[in-house]
Amino acid sequence: MNKVIQRALSIVGSQKKLADICGVSQPAVHKWLNGGLVSPEKVSAIVNATEGKIQAHEVRPDLPDLFPHPQRTVDAA
């Protein structure tokens, strides 16, 4: 189970509500929750839906060039 999506759901309230905010179907959110990857285009929608409580690098840590970890960015500077 994807702990980041699980946290997003606890913040937003339901799979349906997150789906509506992100412009996807509820089954798509269910897929994210159970190991499916969130498309890069939907990452910012999750960040916005959670009012920044979930950060982009948490949703897709496998894409550090697109969604760098803020601490690593500071360290690199």
Rank of each mutant, 00 (worst) to 15 (best):
V47I: 09
P70S: 05
D20W: 06
I21A: 10
V59I: 09
S39R: 13
E58N: 09
V12P: 10
A49D: 02
I21Y: 08
G13V: 00
L37I: 08
A76W: 11
V29F: 05
P68M: 02
G35H: 06
H57T: 00
R72C: 04
P40F: 11
A45W: 03
I54A: 02
Q71S: 13
P27R: 01
V4L: 08
A45C: 11
K17R: 14
N34S: 08
H30M: 10
F67Y: 09
L18D: 07
A76I: 01
A8V: 04
A28I: 10
I5S: 08
N34P: 07
C22F: 02
S39V: 11
K42N: 13
N34V: 04
S44P: 14
G36I: 01
A8Q: 03
E51L: 11
K16G: 09
C22A: 15
G13L: 02
G35V: 04
L66T: 05
P70D: 09
P70V: 04
S14C: 06
K16Y: 08
G36N: 07
I54C: 06
F67Q: 10
I5V: 14
A28S: 14
R72Q: 14
I54S: 07
R72L: 15
I11D: 03
W32N: 00
F67I: 00
V29S: 04
E41S: 14
P64S: 06
P70I: 01
V74G: 03
A8S: 10
I46N: 09
V24Q: 02
P40D: 13
H57M: 00
D65R: 13
L37Y: 13
S25V: 04
H69I: 05
S14G: 10
A76C: 03
N34H: 15
Q26L: 02
A76F: 14
L9I: 08
I11P: 05
C22T: 06
P70L: 03
M1Y: 11
S39D: 14
G52N: 07
K3E: 14
D20F: 06
I5D: 06
P70W: 08
P70H: 05
L66Y: 10
S39C: 12
G23H: 03
K17W: 00
V24W: 04
I54K: 09
V24F: 03
V47L: 09
T73V: 15
L9M: 08
S44H: 12
I21L: 14
L18C: 09
V47F: 09
A49R: 07
V74L: 13
K42L: 08
S10Y: 10
H30V: 11
K3M: 12
S25I: 01
V38N: 04
G35A: 01
D62E: 14
L37P: 03
S44A: 12
L18S: 04
I21W: 03
R72W: 11
I11G: 06
Q55M: 15
D75N: 11
N34K: 12
G36Y: 00
L33S: 13
A45S: 14
L63G: 00
S25W: 01
A19C: 01
C22Y: 01
L63T: 05
A76K: 14
M1P: 11
N48M: 11
A77G: 13
A8D: 04
R72H: 11
V43A: 10
K16H: 13
S14P: 11
S14K: 05
L37R: 15
A28G: 02
P27Q: 02
Q71D: 15
A49H: 02
P64L: 06
K3H: 14
P68Y: 07
Q71R: 14
L63V: 03
D65C: 08
T73R: 13
